[in-house]
Design a protein around this nucleic acid. Structure first.
Lengths: 220, 220
DNA sequence: CTACTTAACGAACATTGTTCGTGTCAAGCT
DNA sequence: AGCTTGACACGAACAATGTTCGTTAAGTAG
């Protein structure tokens, strides 16, 4: 039997382990010790390959964004293409609950995020959007997607902890809204049903539409 | 001299102390011990008044949102009114760097946030927006403002730590963009100047405009 | 003045990121 | 082959965090 020689620790294996931890236990459970345990070693062993815990954030985001496939810009379908790209990013975030927090804190210096950013920019420019508008819109879209995914992750994480008394199912939330004092919260009470509506990612697509439908190609 | 009798610890004083810490040292420096030190006591003394550290988040956000003044809804100026309200929230967030993180994690159960939410909803409905659209748009706007403030706080916090090698002033960022390989990042290189443009809150108002200009009163 | 309830506290515990000195194994040199 | 060397891995330890527990101080009703 070829001796079960320990595989050397590499940056790639650290990234794998970290992703596994985040996928199964969420971003909050991502600790140096937890990652080291997955690799079958102690916490200090990682510091030969990473400089910080923040470094792991960089690795995670890099890996995630590396999976985003960018379409060839089509001037006639730029809105659909953008929706597709950001839906990919959203689903990546949701597959690893809470990572979007790392993305929010990230300086846009990571090479893979730059790659995706370039792709998005190319789509917008191909659609005839003015450069400055394209850049600002891109940042707004990215920011919203990260925040949306973060909020969704938090909500789903709460659902998983049933010991908390505030699971707040939709019915409970509706009850709470309609139980508000009528003189201070008339609108919230009256439209409680509409306020909690929007299962799935309806809200996501609604907001992306809001952001994109105002972008108009420069005449010419 | 009336003896320097220690004032009793109350929830209000804890909130004051926490706000002071966040205002002067940022949200990351908000620890139980730090708050207790401001109150001149030990960490355990707080647990008679709060249940968690998360409780402090609730208190902070409640205090902040209590300061938001809501206008009487004016059907002819609903966009300006919304911009005003969210600018207030943005500036509150920025005055206490990083608190928006607490807002992002908050369940919308806090009474003061509900009050502001009702106010925003009233403005939208007065503007003739359909209830479901109004609710979704409100959530999108709130989410974006929190994320924007969080990002801004992070950027400004980095500027304050000059020991880090990546202060990344605008010029450095531009240099870094134009130094990218031309074949992989043509658009980023070409429009680097536009991408880093937008001093102040131009981007903030741009995005709020993007979100609001697509909201149209229902005919009738 | 005494007894009782409530609030405040100091010490301690578990868990986090991070560092330091030591071991250990494999390749390279003579 | 035997020795050296150097990078990598590791265990123990440290400071800081949130939280709990038993004890003490204070203030009030009788």
């Amino acid at each position: 039997m070829t001796a079960p020689r320990k595989k050397p620790i590499t940056v790639a294996r650290i990234t794998d382990a970290a992703l596994e931890v985040v996928a199964t236990e969420g971003y909050d459970a991502l600790t140096i010790r937890r990652v080291a345990a997955v690799l079958g070693t102690g916490p200090s062993s990682l510091y030969a390959h990473i400089v910080n815990k923040d470094d792991i954030d960089d690795l995670l985001i890099g890996r995630l964004y590396a999976e985003v496939v960018l379409p060839e810009p089509d001037p006639t379908a730029w809105r659909e293409q953008l929706l597709g790209v950001y839906t990919q990013i959203r689903d990546l975030y949701l597959r690893y609950p809470g990572v979007s927090r790392a993305a929010l804190a990230m300086v846009p210096t990571n090479l893979e995020t730059l790659r995706v950013g370039e792709g998005v920019l190319a789509i917008l420019l191909a659609g005839g959007i003015e450069p400055r508008t394209a850049g600002w819109a891109r940042d707004a879209l990215s920011l919203y997607v990260s925040a949306y995914a973060l909020e969704q992750s938090l909500v789903r994480q709460r659902r998983r902890h049933p010991d908390q008394e505030w699971v707040l199912s939709d019915e409970e939330l509706l009850d709470r809204f309609t139980a508000l004092p009528a003189e201070k919260f008339p609108q919230t009470r009256r439209h409680a049903a509409e306020l909690i509506s929007g299962t799935g990612h309806d809200r996501f697509e609604f907001t992306l539409g809001l952001l994109m439908n105002n972008l108009r190609p420069t005449s010419g």
